[in-house]
Write a protein that binds this DNA or RNA. Structure first.
Lengths: 361, 361
DNA sequence: CGATTCCATGGAATCGTTTCCACGAGGTAC
DNA sequence: GTACCTCGTGGAAACGATTCCATGGAATCG
């Protein structure tokens, strides 16, 4: 950790630190002679400016904070990737934090990011608004919400409008004859959990389907709650013949649970999940999904944040969602024998269509 | 961004900055009286120490850098998660960077991390050793390699010994009667690519199977090359009846390609992939994998790095791998009709066992 | 040719914190 | 009662960069 400072570069180049600094930070007030001497001295010593010192003096740190709810969720992994690539394009590094769907870890990271004086924060908030989040806003640290929002907080955000996709999904299932559609919901403490649930409820009513509250299971966006949801819903006296799951991780848990119970996806039970993950298309039968663009979301979030950093107050952006039909929702209500909760199904003829998508992919 | 400094806290508390600093950083040389006065002043002002200034003065930044090859690879997403959790336990934040399997992006991040003066770096190196990596070592910045190593660089590392798992897999396939096993390899520029390929070659010889070089396709650990590998291998005049794939992303590409070709996994073609991803167990048929513990790898990497930071020179750690048999490798060589490259198979009777694992999971 | 502008340069202040050093008050030991 | 510690405290230096300001030489203009 032998630190090479600008002082030594200046000494080797035979100029003052001021001149060395000017050359190294691209200040035009330098002569070609000293430019070249400083440049070669810096190269020879393999000099890297100390970002701490630089940030201390100037106002900028050239770092963005990205706090996601769960890195292991492929949706957020993709988001992290696109945000990072967009940020690097603008000369920012991204400090990634993982809240693990827990408010305390989120706050811990938020405090860290604040004290590291990042130039701005992109946040997928967990919970209903902690002190740390309020502190963030009170200090006027540029912040953008992504994927989720917090009611009553006036922060630019980029979110998905799940309504269209969910309406399409419910309609699609209704057309196939399903009248009892189960719903594994996200937590009502999150905006996406509430919004998607509201859209589902509305769509069910619009299509004249059963609005039995027992058909809704409230999960927490993690895999285990998807399993629990399947367990609860298929254990009903009148189980659903189709299932809508509000995010990809819960869908994974749900599918695992269906496997264990011997319930055949797309045969005994139709299923649609929110979030389009590459792997979902590879399942057999392939999983129908409500898709939205992670790439757009990441790029937009960075755009908005840069505008806020530059003193602007950009309007929030809402991105569309869309249903992609695949084989998992091919079963009609009449073909479903979904009461089979726990009783392993007998081997059927294999499902044929396995890669049947509304749009090419 | 109204910055509240320790000076204002000291003023409000009626003490000097020195005393305020001592209280806030836990220095015992403080009286209970000033302790409480400073504490309440800091709370009232919602003071957060400036991490830049703190790091500038002291030697520590309390930040670790983690540079992974690809965040979207579930293996590395899991690794990022475990590393981050282990680090936070020791009071470190983790700055995550994503090399995207590209040496130039890796170097860019490495430079950033160096200039931000992280206390240590955990690196899954891409390529054969760039100037930036050499510079890292020359500066004696605490570094640990994870998952991969670089030949000739004396850096503590934590890696997986794939040999045992690969040997088990080849043997398992040989016992089922397969004599022509295809291999989709990782890049030979990475240590894991070389090691796993060597283990495969050795195991093939040991089991007296065909060592036809045409059975090996060299990919780059990304999904597209898995597709390309399937295309190349199944296009052979004598195609393999079983396939071993060297990482999870290439496995995803391979499976997608098999779907498109109508080749049935576990029926027309047996398959085993390296890396155990939760989703692989959900495929139908479930995918046999060579498993290794991401959690152990992440925790160990942090442990080693902390030892290096404390001046130690810990020995490298090699973790074991193990075969988990599921339905995708259930087909015997005789049942395989794998020449069927491109000709869609007729619907068969459904594969029965779909969740058949050697160990509970 | 003298006055003025331009320009590269170096000295020094600055950012916010930690820590060295000196100092004075109070307590203990002879 | 003097000598010696201990302990809390405040002033000031230090960390490594940027940037304001003053300076002196060259170039330009009348």
């Amino acid at each position: 950790m032998n630190a090479i400072t600008i002082r030594e570069v200046a000494a080797l180049a035979g100029v003052s630190v001021a001149t060395a600094s000017r050359v190294l930070s691209g200040n035009p007030a330098t002569s070609p002679a000293s430019r070249s001497r400083v440049a070669s001295a810096a190269a020879e010593l393999d000099f890297r400016p100390n970002a701490q010192a630089r940030a201390l003096r100037g106002a900028r740190t050239n770092a963005l904070g990205l706090l996601v709810s769960d890195v292991r969720n492929p949706f957020f992994a993709d988001l992290a990737h696109t945000v990072e690539q967009a940020a690097i394009l603008h000369g920012y590094v991204t400090l990634l934090g993982n809240a693990n769907e827990r408010a305390d870890q989120q706050d811990r990271y938020l405090d860290t990011l604040i004290s590291r004086r990042v130039d701005g924060i992109i946040l997928a908030p967990v919970g209903a608004g902690s002190d740390s989040i309020r502190s963030l806003i009170a200090r006027e640290i540029p912040t953008v919400f992504v994927d989720r929002t917090i009611a009553g907080m006036d922060v630019p955000s980029v979110t998905t409008d799940g309504t269209a996709g969910i309406r399409q999904a419910v309609e699609h299932l209704a057309v196939a004859g399903h009248t009892r559609i189960g719903y594994i919901s996200g937590p009502q403490a999150s905006s996406t959990g509430r919004d998607r649930f509201a859209a589902f409820t509305r769509s069910v009513v619009e299509n004249g389907l059963s609005a039995d509250p027992a058909l809704v299971y409230f999960g927490d966006y993690q895999a285990a709650s998807g399993s629990a949801g399947v367990h609860a819903l298929l254990g009903l006296r009148e189980p659903p013949t189709a299932l809508l799951v509000a995010d990809s991780l819960m869908a994974v848990g749900a599918i695992a649970s269906l496997h264990d119970r011997g319930v055949r996806l797309g045969v005994d039970l139709a299923m649609v999940a929110f979030d389009d993950i590459e792997w979902f298309a590879l399942l057999n039968p392939a999983l129908s999904v409500i898709s939205h663009s992670v790439a757009d979301m990441g790029r937009t979030a960075v755009d908005l944040l840069l505008q806020v950093i530059d003193g602007g107050t950009p309007a929030s952006v809402v991105l569309p969602s869309e249903l992609i039909v695949r084989a998992s929702s091919a079963s009609s209500a009449s073909s479903a024998t979904a009461g089979a909760a726990g009783t392993p199904a007998t081997p059927p003829t294999a499902p044929t269509a396995s890669h049947n998508s509304v749009r090419t992919h």
